[in-house]
Design a protein around this nucleic acid. Sequence first.
DNA 1: GTCTATAAGATGATAGAC
DNA 2: GTCTATCATCTTATAGAC
Lengths: 220, 220
Amino acid sequence: MAEGVSIRPRNGKGEAATAAFGQAKPGKSAATRQRILDVAAATFLRKGYAATTLNDIAKASRLRAASLYYHFDSKEQLLDVVLLTGVERLFQAVRQAVEAVPPEANRLARVEAAIGAHLAVLIEGGDYTSCAMRIFGQLPPAVQRRQMPRREAYGEYWRTLLADAAAAGELRPDLDLSLARMFLFGALNWTPEWFKRGRGATAAAARQLSRLFLAGLARD
Amino acid sequence: MAEGVSIRPRNGKGEAATAAFGQAKPGKSAATRQRILDVAAATFLRKGYAATTLNDIAKASRLRAASLYYHFDSKEQLLDVVLLTGVERLFQAVRQAVEAVPPEANRLARVEAAIGAHLAVLIEGGDYTSCAMRIFGQLPPAVQRRQMPRREAYGEYWRTLLADAAAAGELRPDLDLSLARMFLFGALNWTPEWFKRGRGATAAAARQLSRLFLAGLARD
DNA sequence: GTCTATAAGATGATAGAC
DNA sequence: GTCTATCATCTTATAGAC
């Protein structure tokens, strides 16, 4: 809890505390905060962090820039929350999809489930994850450092996923799993750059990528 | 020539014209201009366009910010040149690698050559191409629009490369070539995000990616 | 909770000396 | 070719009214 990033609102009140006051509508603060975060994720994704001004975010949130400081300490803290939320959503969705695979299925089925979930979150899971993946590399080092623990945990999860498949003899033996994983991340994380949503398009893309990746990865 | 981006220096002098004056050392302007561009590409790549100030670029070029305006009209024009240079270098290297493949080789060998060249330029070809690929999606729409013609030409070149292989019956018939190409671009263009250079590392990575991609793409 | 007003500093760009 | 000086504008952030 000491390291990493907290996502507590600046006003220090949760839903309950806010509701305890009779003055504000219950959840008004939380709802506004949420709206700000949604807008921030969308704008950071589209223009990048530095090019996004607090005025951009405020306007799209139907507020003045100064009002953002009631909900967040700084622009950078707003970014922290967006990034962390993006990674958490991704991690949770992927883990859930993997755990939904029947235990009797082979290890590659778990990898395939992870690919599908990662892609689905990126494309249909809102802007947090796509933002977190897309802009990360150009952010101030201090921000990157705070995010590293969760990101490394996610990478480690995938490393295990692939190592398990290798240990089960389901992978070609001549592969560098570390390279393969990073190339796969690239294919996945690049999708927000070009993919156009459409009915069924996401599932079809996931199937394609799984086939592309697995048929090259799996032993014949 | 009317559309797209010119890369002529602001002072309107080429090497010869500058040398015609006895005062300045021959090529001083061109050399400084080159230094500025190198620094700009490196800095845009690391921090993004918006987060990079003219002061950043000037300082690393051993100049004052105002001096940049002798060589370029604006920050945005500097960006234009970096981007266009990056794409041209990439296109040229890939085309050259493909044309070096013996005509009697199959079509997939050409694809493999293209993968190797694209990756090599990204990792070892300086900062222009990696910058151009990495930051493009977050740039102002006007800048993106100016770059589109060359980028689409490059995409079209790849489309043909894959379509030829398909026409030659070297690809599995159940593939969406458009999706496959974009996933491949992702795997390639994401590499600057994580790849650490090392002796032989680039060639090894290219072999891995080719195998990963082709063994999944090629008919058994 | 959100506003107006404003501080304090940085930024892209221009003018003109050298 | 590069510099110093300067400008107009924008940016993050704070103070305090409502």
